[in-house]
Write a protein that binds this DNA or RNA. Structure first.
Length: 288
DNA sequence: TCCCAGGCTTGGT
DNA sequence: ACCAAGCATGGG
């Protein structure tokens, strides 16, 4: 079972640094040996850049690769057309963002995991969000193992709604750093378990409808809804605006009088790729 | 000690 | 429709 898949993808086509540091995923890690680890629900994968051959080597069997990870990493989407559009525009900040974050991809993440993860993200810092999620997985996920080039390693799956629903508020709050968000997560888990809130209702809807359904959840507002739409539902017209994006709009697009005007510019010029644009801008602004 | 972190709810106008 | 507090928690 030491299978691995060699994918001829250049760093310009697949850029894990950009993906990892654009704030779309919390369970992606780079170890000192250059190995990347990604966890999603109860799936795991390891990969590394082969300097000699100049392509990414994924340590996974062919079936999992074809049936899960190709889709997860959004490798079916061709970004070359939108990239060309960006580079021929006169939007200098966006052009610099693309040069910096080339190989960015919008992942197809698990709906439940992204919903809970972004509820945790409210009024929180990224390192703390990551720690909190790790605690939840360790406490109420299942121990899993996966094959890596340095041997079998372990991780914990993301806790299911049923598992969380059975906890008391005290248990879910104690030692998890969730704070006041615990009650949002507990209530939502209970509603999902009892079918009062059907996650399936979110599938096969357009952006407007999905935003409405998501915001009906207690503890979920416009920002988190946009994140879940983009990362959990892959609705690419979502454009989450957080403190960093507010800074971008204020400092790098000051020619627009209002956020609404700015959004109109994004929506008309980059229809169907707004979320991708946002990720490029966020990554550039945050990591430069 | 105070301030902030990838916001949201609630309770005022 | 818009505005301000208050909300847990840890790190600077």
């Amino acid at each position: 079972m030491n299978a691995n898949v060699c994918i001829k993808l250049s760093k310009e086509e697949f850029n894990p640094e950009a993906i990892m540091k654009s704030g779309q995923i919390f369970r992606m890690y780079k170890k000192s040996d250059g190995l990347y680890h990604v966890y999603s629900r109860d799936n795991a994968i390891t990969f590394k850049y082969d300097q000699k051959e100049r392509f990414w080597r994924f340590y996974v069997n062919q079936w999992d690769w074809q049936n899960f990870w190709v889709h997860f990493f959004d490798l079916e989407t061709d970004y070359s057309k939108i990239n060309r559009k960006i580079m021929t525009s006169n939007d200098n900040f966006l052009k610099k963002s693309l040069e910096y974050g080339k190989g960015m991809r919008i992942l197809h993440q698990d709906l439940w995991e992204s919903l809970i993860s972004f509820i945790i993200s409210q009024q929180n810092s990224i390192p703390k969000i990551q720690k909190t999620i790790e605690i939840l997985c360790k406490n109420w996920g299942n121990k899993q193992s996966y094959v890596t080039p340095i041997g079998i390693q372990h991780f914990y799956s993301f806790p299911t709604p049923e598992r969380i629903a059975n906890l008391s508020l005290e248990t879910l709050t104690d030692g998890t750093m969730l704070g006041y968000r615990a009650k949002y997560i507990l209530n939502l888990s209970k509603d999902v378990k009892s079918n009062k809130f059907k996650l399936e209702k979110l599938l096969n809807n357009d952006y407007e409808e999905s935003m409405k359904i998501l915001q009906s959840i207690n503890g979920v507002g416009p920002k988190i809804s946009n994140c879940v739409c983009l990362y959990g539902l892959h609705l690419m017209e979502s454009y989450p605006i957080d403190v960093w994006m507010s800074k971008v709009i204020e400092e790098d697009y000051y020619q627009f009088d209002t956020v609404k005007q700015y959004l109109q510019y994004i929506n008309t010029n980059y229809e169907g790729f707004q979320g991708y644009i946002q990720q490029l801008q966020f990554y550039y602004k945050r990591n430069l």
